[in-house]
Nucleic acid binder design. Structure first.
Length: 646
RNA sequence: GCCGUUGUAGCUCAGGGGUAGAGCACUUCCUUGGUAAGGAAGAGGCCAAGGGUUCAAAUCCCUUCAAUGGCUCCA
């Protein structure tokens, strides 16, 4: 019997007989540890804890706490869901059942049977019942012929379709209880690990994600190894709902929608507009410092502009339809992006290599006819304002300019305390080039420029194929909302194509005409989406420099109304956004209301303050800053804001 | 656009085949107060819109619109 060396993460090496499983290794350490082992990572690959290890290996024992452990746990839960579905609804056909970020789903074809959310409880109970049978997840290698035979007999055409794409010799089945599924694994040792189950939602989902295929019923669920973890999860969900920008936006009177105005067309209320204005000023200042020049362009553009840019061919049918004029054949589109307009600004005068880079910036409002089912609060709308800019640069300047834009985006994120973002390099889908315009050479140049710049700035990035814009690759900054959905905020794009389409030129030092490269960029992405994500990040407690109302003056009684008004005037002179609560209410009530409106600073003024010409300052949340002169308050506020912005 | 869910007062929600309910917000009056809810009265609704079933519909059915959870899409 040969012996193998198992290296554990702490560097210790243990000797075992070949064929020992990760679970047995765990048992050799302690029974308690073994009870918590969900799966194992052998030489970097996640496998069943029960899989025999045949050679020397690095071994990581995976528990629930590990990301890969959770994924395995939820994947096995999907199998349990499928088993319960087959038991409750005989004849259902199964699609796929993978883990997701939180939980898992299974796509199911119910045929003629009905399944509604009222049956979640029944399904959960069945799953729990099956989990308690303590069935082992058993792996079995099968030949392609066996696999086809099994699912042909079962009549599951979806699985058969999946098997078609698999190679003989790499097909495995997993079984637990009365259920067998085509599956690569790995899985948890037995069903009894699953102690708490929640079926969370029901959705339609196209088979293999293709709109042309049949729509299956997707059942989402989440499971835990302890009941208490499920309870905690439900609390977190509740908390996330409290942070929802649609809820807070309503409560803080930031924005609204009107059926009459039209779906997906946000209306900014005074406080929301104030907030947005602060963001615009903040970025404008940073952009001027970085050498950008503001430009302004109209909200519509002639159809020919978009024929030139290529947008008409790509989106013409799915956009807001053109505005016609009394003149025969004349058509205008609501502008869906600002780039073509900016290209024409570039062309307004001849450019020398000495003029470049040219950086045109515009807070440009654009209109896109998003599909009805896609609209979502402020994050996906039909009319929105991009903090757009286009840089026209010489080829030798691409990387330097790209890096400077990365710096600007990072500055914006840092100022707003966005730490939890992903930098995503979105490249072309190499298997579906027809979706894109432009030559392979230009795409190669643009993709290389992005990858190199991101590396140079030391960004840790993920690469996504097929996520590029149709005219060029992108570096996208993705941020999660309260419930974990990912949204693209900042974006930087390198584009060799539009300069060609618009025949943009500059005269080089050689006195010949050259073609500039375009960089599209938007640090916020759009003000609407940015504000939405910002709200969810800070739960409506905006930084002092940004919040629509910074200070509220709370006179203790009507007797101090005049004093309060004097204070208000002083604050306004110092550009501090302040208001007075002059209702005939007690101080406790006024404080409570100010807290609910998330006002950062409350000034309580009564007999004492009036006599001493001071204010008593309470910060939101209850901290007492004591009493001070209004001048000291102003400098305190200014210092606070300065700290926040640096 | 597709599958599911929802739509009652400004907001949060209860109710439910027989003339619409609560709390908060709002208005007026009383109260003039010291760090998270003072008291009273009042006003506010075609129960999303349209059609059906019924003696009778906010309630049951259908259609549309909108919101919402997903899918697909996202210049």
């Amino acid at each position: 019997m040969s012996e193998i060396k198992i290296t554990l993460p702490d560097g210790s090496v243990k000797h075992f007989e070949a064929g020992t499983s990760a679970l047995q290794v765990a048992q050799s350490i302690s029974e308690g540890l073994a009870r918590n082992i969900i799966a194992a990572k052998v030489n970097g690959k996640v496998v069943d804890a029960t899989l025999p290890i045949l050679t020397d290996a690095d071994l990581v024992l995976l528990k629930w706490e590990d990301q890969d452990g959770k994924r395995t746990f939820w994947h096995s839960s999907a199998h349990l869901l499928a088993e319960a579905l087959e038991a409750l609804y005989p004849g259902v056909k199964l699609g796929i059942g993978p883990p997701v970020e939180t939980g898992f789903y299974y796509d199911v074809d119910f045929g003629d049977q009905k399944f509604t959310s009222e049956e979640f409880g029944k399904l959960e109970n069945k799953m729990l019942e099956l989990a308690r049978t303590n069935s082992a997840y058993v792996r079995k290698e099968v030949s392609k012929a066996e696999a086809i035979q099994y699912f042909t007999e079962k009549g599951d055409e979806y699985k058969l379709e999946l098997i078609e794409d698999l190679n003989d010799g790499e097909i495995t089945f997993y079984s637990q209880g009365n259920f067998t599924d085509l599956c690569r694994g790995p899985h948890i040792p037995t069903t009894s690990f699953i102690k708490a189950i929640k079926i969370t939602s029901l959705a339609g989902a196209y088979w293999r994600g293709n709109e042309k295929n049949k729509q299956l019923t997707r059942i989402y669920g989440v499971t835990f190894p302890k009941k208490s973890e499920l309870d905690e999860y439900m609390v977190i969900l509740e908390e996330a709902k409290r942070r929802d920008h649609r809820k807070i936006g309503k409560e803080l009177e930031l924005f609204t929608f009107s059926e009459k105005v039209g779906m997906g067309l946000p209306l900014w209320l005074p406080k929301g507009a104030r907030l947005r204005e602060s963001l615009v000023q903040f970025l404008q200042k940073a952009q001027v410092a970085a050498g950008y020049q503001p430009v302004i362009t109209p909200h519509i553009g002639n159809k020919n502009l978009y024929i030139t840019s290529g947008h008409y061919e790509k989106y013409g049918e799915d956009a807001f339809q053109p505005i016609k004029t009394p003149r025969e054949g004349e058509e205008f589109f609501l502008k869906p992006m600002n780039c073509p307009h900016h290209c024409e600004i570039y062309k307004a005068s001849p450019k020398s290599y000495k003029d470049l880079p040219v950086r045109y910036a515009e807070f440009g409002t654009v209109y896109r006819y998003e599909q009805a089912g896609e609209l979502h609060g402020l994050t996906r709308v039909r009319g929105f304002t991009q903090d757009d800019a286009h840089l026209f640069v010489r080829p030798d300047q691409v990387k330097e300019e790209f890096c400077k834009v990365i710096d600007l985006v990072l500055y914006v994120f840092k100022s707003l305390d966005f730490k939890d973002y992903t930098a995503q390099i979105s490249l072309r889908d190499p298997n579906n080039k027809t979706k894109y315009i432009g030559s392979d050479e230009n795409w190669a140049l643009a993709e290389a420029a992005i990858i190199e710049s991101a590396a140079e700035k030391g960004l840790s990035t993920v690469i996504e194929l097929g996520e590029a814009a149709f005219y060029g690759p992108k570096l996208d900054f993705m941020v999660k909302d309260a419930i974990g959905r990912k949204w693209q905020l900042g974006t930087i794009q390198v584009d060799y194509n539009l300069p060609e389409r618009f025949e943009l030129e500059y005269t080089g030092s050689d006195n010949l005409k050259h073609r500039p490269v375009m960089i599209h960029r938007a640090p916020f992405g759009s003000l609407e989406r940015f504000v939405a994500v910002l709200i969810e990040h800070c739960a409506g407690n905006f930084p002092l420099w940004l919040t629509p109302e910074q200070v509220i003056i709370l006179p203790i009684s009507e007797k101090y109304q005049e004093y309060a008004e004097n204070l208000l005037n002083v604050l306004k002179k110092h550009d501090i956004r302040a208001l007075i609560d002059d209702r005939s209410e007690k101080t406790g009530k006024k404080i409570r209301d100010a807290e609910l409106k998330k006002l950062p600073l409350m000034l309580i003024v009564g007999e004492k303050e009036q006599a001493e010409n001071t204010v008593s300052v309470r910060k939101q949340g209850g901290e007492d800053l004591g009493s001070m002169s209004v001048e000291s308050l102003v400098s305190w506020i200014n210092k606070e804001i300065e700290t926040q912005l640096n």
